[in-house]
């Protein structure tokens, strides 16, 4: 069992490494992609400067906290899209029968399918996240916490995409649900939760867990709270398990490329 996990880990890393090598074939494109993503994220600071010129406190956040919120949002997104890029194209992989080659390998199908390419620009997001952390205030404790939340949040984002994409095993047009779910997560991630009220507030800590990925970490890094910390861990583990469970349940219905649409 332990050996199997070790081997799986080894092959996943190897797969990511090779995918990275592929991206680096064109050095200039590789570097510009990263730099432009950092600039892209940075350009949104303009928006917040304007907003904070109207009010000192938006949704309970200071300007500095919004920067940290952006940092967490960028680094979780970057982590997830770098290591698990194909989790965001999984619907297409399922619908077009591209799981075949992973199914004949003696490894975890889901992991093989989502780790076989990396997103270059996500490195820019990841770096941007840490730049924001430095602006917010660097300390060893913050660095460790930030990294920890980046990994948890990255896993949550990936799991959500996997769960929604797995619906493709049952429904044909589920890619719209996937897109909506993913863009909800990324759009909500960069706005303070204090601006939301009522049912939306409940949703962001449950069905659309932007709260768990982004808001709780900002809160913990401002003032440590062990209960919230445990909630993040438990939520992450639950969602990862759910992703594997639903994907493997759906896999039994996998129809390779044999599912064609017949015209009459």
């Amino acid at each position: 069992m332990l050996m199997e996990v070790k081997n799986q880990f080894k092959i996943t890393l190897l797969s990511v490494k090779y995918a990275l090598v592929r991206e680096m074939l064109n050095k200039t494109t590789f570097i510009t992609n990263i730099l432009f993503m950092i600039l892209n994220n940075a350009s949104f600071i303009i928006q917040w400067i304007v907003l904070y010129s109207l009010k000192d406190n938006i949704g309970g956040y200071t300007f500095n906290q919004v920067l940290l919120l952006w940092g967490i949002a960028a680094s979780t997104y970057g982590f997830s899209h770098f290591f698990f890029k194909n989790a965001y194209y999984l619907s297409d992989t399922i619908n077009n029968g591209k799981l075949d080659s992973f199914l004949v390998q003696p490894k975890n199908v889901l992991l093989s399918a989502i780790t076989n390419s990396v997103e270059t620009s996500a490195i820019g997001d990841f770096i941007y996240g840490y730049i924001m952390l430095f602006i917010f205030g660097f300390s060893i404790k913050n660095f460790i916490l930030f990294t920890f939340f980046t990994i948890c949040g990255g896993f949550i984002l990936t799991s959500i995409s996997v769960i929604l994409s797995s619906l493709s095993f049952w429904f044909n047009k589920s890619d719209i649900i996937v897109d909506t779910g993913n863009s909800l997560m990324t759009s909500l991630a960069t706005y303070p939760d204090g601006i939301f009220k009522g049912i939306v507030k409940i949703l962001i800590y449950t069905l659309i867990p932007a709260g768990i990925v982004n808001y709780i970490p900002v809160e913990i890094m401002t003032e440590f709270n062990i209960n919230l910390f445990l909630i993040v861990i438990i939520f992450t583990i639950t969602l990862i398990s759910l992703a594997f469970l639903i994907f493997y349940k759906g896999l039994k219905r996998y129809s390779s490329s044999n599912l064609m649409v017949a015209r009459i």
Binding site: L54, I58, T180, S187, Y191, I195
Partner: peptide, 29 residues
């Protein structure tokens, strides 16, 4: 039409944001 969903999400966030920033509806900024 499905592409409008992303648009909708953003509009929804901004609705909340401006509702928060405008302390009362008659305020003019």
């Amino acid at each position: 039409a499905a592409g409008f969903i992303g648009c909708f999400i953003l509009l929804f966030i901004f609705l909340n944001l401006w509702q928060y920033i405008y302390s009362n509806p008659s305020e003019i900024i």
